[in-house]
Every structure is written in structure tokens, then in C-alpha cells.
Nucleic acid binder design. Structure first.
Lengths: 188, 188
DNA sequence: CATAGCCTACCAAGTAGTAGGATGTCAAAT
DNA sequence: ATTTGACATCCTACTACTTGGTAGGCTATG
């Protein structure tokens, strides 16, 4: 199972940096040191590989999110930890895997779309929890529903990562991220 | 010049829907009804085509934005008109051209990146103007600087479009968009 | 003996891009 | 007014390369 994980790690990096249409089996083969044909033994089609990538990525994210939400951090700090995930993507010049695949949605095999949708839903559900937690403790000042704020946060972070990665303006990402928190926590 | 415009229109649609790495000269050729080789007469390389696309797209956007900011609409309504641009992209199943290219930034010829960066700067500058206008009229309640709010708006709309297009959840886009306006206009 | 994992060798289709020729248009020189 | 030449636009035909994927064989491990 070692090789399978190497392949997944390489493919994940390639998708996050170059997109699903921006790399080939040859790229992975060169990186992990086996032949192209051998890759097809582990993942018969590129769609199989894509599905596995979303699954692994979602699982790993879920476990990280559970760690954060189960911690003793304040709601604000939990949100900060979530933001930090995007920051480290940016530092590695990687887009979020979900966001990258989302941009290519119309070119993907349709079987990948439900998994992708589930990925975003998980993010929103987790954010909603944290927002409700912070709201009930009067740490956050929500106007609309928590789920709407969650959607806003997710969208803004995906967009900020998207743009900062392309422009190379890391400072813009930081400003956007802290504005997002400020907006939630300010007393009117 | 008719053919050149047809090519640009076709290519723009293809980039917005499928990404710069998601279409080929053959796709355009089939759509506009000339041969692949003839396309190279108008745009010798795909990078030339990409540069022209950003330029045309930016110019058209700038003229739309000038119309909005020069109108007698309230600042909130001007923002609403900006949001409407994203909404119509979503309805056409298109990503913003800039956002799409941003996701593929690491695979693009580096000569395209400065134009792309300029595109995002134009958006932020325009949004900053509108926010300052609304702030001085006490229509908006800004916490941080106008430019930070502008970045947040741009990021959130790009992200909302990205996600809604992939999940097919148009309602999520609307909720996000109206949350963004609410956050700006609420009195604490 | 079966199967997992890898290999060489191959395939059909698609990629951006080039060479060179046909046709037309338009402006300057005759 | 007509010829000439430059240039624009398109074409057929092609190249060199990459793409995802397959066929079938080798070897080691259970």
C-alpha cells in the first residue's frame, strides 16, 4: 500500500497546483518512479484516481476539523485554525483540492461531482457548528443564519486563496482573512 | 475583424466553462467554422489568444463598471449591480474569466500573469471606490479599511461563483451574496 | 498455482504549431 | 484604367509530441 499512497500524494499535489486537466499519468510516473502502465494497475482510469483523491482529502480534512472542534480553543481560535489550513495551502502554492476541482467541474466525469458536493457540505456544516457555538457564547455577532455566514466564510476563503495564489499577494490573503473574523466579532 | 471577434467570443466561453487547459484550437475551429490552421493566423500561439482574452474581458468589464459607478444608483444598488454580473455568469454556467485563469495560474505562460493581476486590481479599486462612497454617506458600516472590505467582497463572490457552479446550488450563491451586503449595511 | 505489482511495447486520438499554396482585397505605380 | 505587388485570410497537409489506456509477459510472495 506504500506505492498507492505515494501516487495519491503526488497526484494530490499536482491537482492542487496544476488542476485535474493540468497533469498526466506521465507526471506522476516520473515522480514516484514507476512506469505509466503500472499506475493503471492502482487506478485504472483517471476518474478512479480523482475519486480516490477526493475521498482521501475529505477524510483527512474531517479528522483535522474534528480535532479542532473537539479542542478547548475559543470559537474565534477554532476559526483561526480553519483559516490556517488555507494559509498553509497558499504557502505551498496549492489551491484547495475541492476548489480546484470545482473550477474544472464541467470537464470532470460526472461521477466525481457528488463527492465534490459532499466535500463542500462538510466544510459548511463544520463552520456552521463553530459559528453557532460562538454565537451562543456571544463571541460572534451574527446577522443572518449561521449557515449563511458559514457559506460566506467558505466562499471568501476559497476566493482569497484562489486570487492570492495567482497574484502572489500573500498579504491580501491575510487582510481578507482577518476582515472576515473582524466582521463576525465586532460589536456594533 | 468579424472572425477575430467570433474567435474571441468562442474562446472566452470555452475558458470560462472549461478552463484554459480544458479546450483546444480544434474546439474553437469547429465552433466558428474555420480550420485549426487559420486560427493560428489570428492568434499564433495559445498564449497570444489568452492575452487577448484577458485584455478584451478587462476592457469590457471596465466599461460596465464605469457605467455603474457613474449612474445615480445608491452605493448599495451599485454593489447589487456588481453582484448581478456574477449571477449572470453563474446562470450561463461560466466562471469569471479571471477566476478561472487564476486557478490555472501555475500552468499558464508567465506573460499572462501581469494582465491577470491587473484585472483583479481593477476590481478591487472599483469596489473600494464604491465602499468609500457608501461609507461617507453612512450607508455602509465599515470596520477595517475600504480596500480590505473590497478584497473580501471580491474573494467571496469569486468563491461563491466557483462553488455554486460546481454544486449547482444557485440558492447558496444568493444567500452568500445577500449576506455580504447585509454585513456591510447593518447597524450594530 | 494465484495474484499483486511491475514491466516493455504498443495504440488511437488529440495537442499546439508549421509549411506552403489558393484566393481575395486594396493601394500605389504605370 | 490597368497592372503590379503586398498583405490578409483561409485552406490542405503535415509534424512532433502528449494523452489516457491496453496487451501481455516477468517475478516475487502467499
Amino acid at each position: 500500500m506504500e506505492m498507492r499512497d505515494q501516487i495519491l500524494a503526488s497526484a494530490q499535489r499536482l491537482v492542487q497546483q496544476r488542476g485535474f486537466n493540468g497533469f498526466s499519468y506521465a507526471d506522476i510516473a516520473a515522480e514516484v518512479g514507476i512506469r505509466k502502465a503500472s499506475l493503471h494497475h492502482h487506478f485504472p482510469t483517471k476518474t478512479d484516481l480523482g475519486l480516490a483523491l477526493i475521498e482521501v482529502y475529505s477524510e483527512r480534512l474531517n479528522s483535522v476539523l474534528l480535532n479542532i472542534s473537539g479542542s478547548s480553543l475559543t470559537a474565534v481560535a477554532k476559526l483561526g485554525a480553519y483559516v490556517a489550513l488555507y494559509r498553509s495551502s497558499l504557502e505551498a502554492e496549492r489551491m484547495c483540492l475541492g476548489g480546484m476541482l470545482a473550477s474544472e467541474a464541467l470537464t470532470l466525469d460526472a461521477t466525481m461531482l457528488p463527492s465534490l458536493k459532499r466535500f463542500f457540505n462538510c466544510n459548511i456544516e463544520w463552520l456552521t457548528e463553530i459559528l453557532e457555538e460562538g454565537n451562543s457564547q456571544q463571541i460572534f455577532v451574527l446577522n443572518g443564519s449561521a449557515v449563511n455566514h458559514a457559506r460566506m466564510l467558505l466562499s471568501a476563503l476559497q476566493g482569497a486563496l484562489l486570487i492570492a495564489r495567482a497574484t502572489g499577494d500573500r498579504e491580501a490573503f491575510e487582510q481578507t482573512a482577518s476582515s472576515l473574523i473582524t466582521v463576525l466579532t465586532r460589536k456594533g
